[in-house]
C-alpha cells in the first residue's frame, strides 16, 4: 500500500489496471457530466480499473456493480484518489 496524501488526485485514465480509485471530482460538463452522474460516478464512489481493450482504448471499470467501458478522453475528466 502506497501512502497517498488526500490531495494527490489523478485522472481516472491514469489509474493503473487492477487498482481502485475514489471519485473526487468531475470536470466534464453538460450531457457527458449528466451521463457520468447517472452511471453513479458521484463523490466518494469507488471505481476499479478492470482491463484495457486489446486495441488500447477504452478501459473497463467496475462502477457500482456494473462493468462500464470509458474512453481515455472521458476518463480524463474524472478525478480520483488512489485507494
Amino acid at each position: 500500500m502506497r501512502s497517498n496524501s488526500c490531495h494527490s488526485f489523478i485522472s481516472l485514465d491514469r489509474l493503473p489496471i487492477g487498482r481502485m480509485g475514489r471519485v473526487k471530482a468531475l470536470t466534464a460538463k453538460e450531457q457527458s457530466r449528466r451521463r457520468m452522474l447517472d452511471l453513479g460516478l458521484i463523490n466518494d464512489t469507488v471505481v476499479e480499473a478492470l482491463r484495457q481493450s486489446p486495441s488500447g482504448d477504452p478501459v473497463a471499470y467496475q462502477i457500482r456493480g456494473a462493468v462500464i467501458a470509458l474512453r481515455s478522453e472521458e476518463a480524463a475528466q474524472i478525478l480520483v484518489e488512489l485507494v
Binding site: 466534464a28 452511471l39 473497463a60 456494473a66 462493468v67 462500464i68 467501458a69 470509458l70 474512453r71
Partner: peptide, 10 residues
C-alpha cells in the same frame, strides 16, 4: 469531435 462514449459490458 467524437461524442462521449460509455459502453456497458453486461
Amino acid at each position: 469531435l467524437p461524442s462521449s462514449f460509455t459502453l456497458e459490458l453486461p
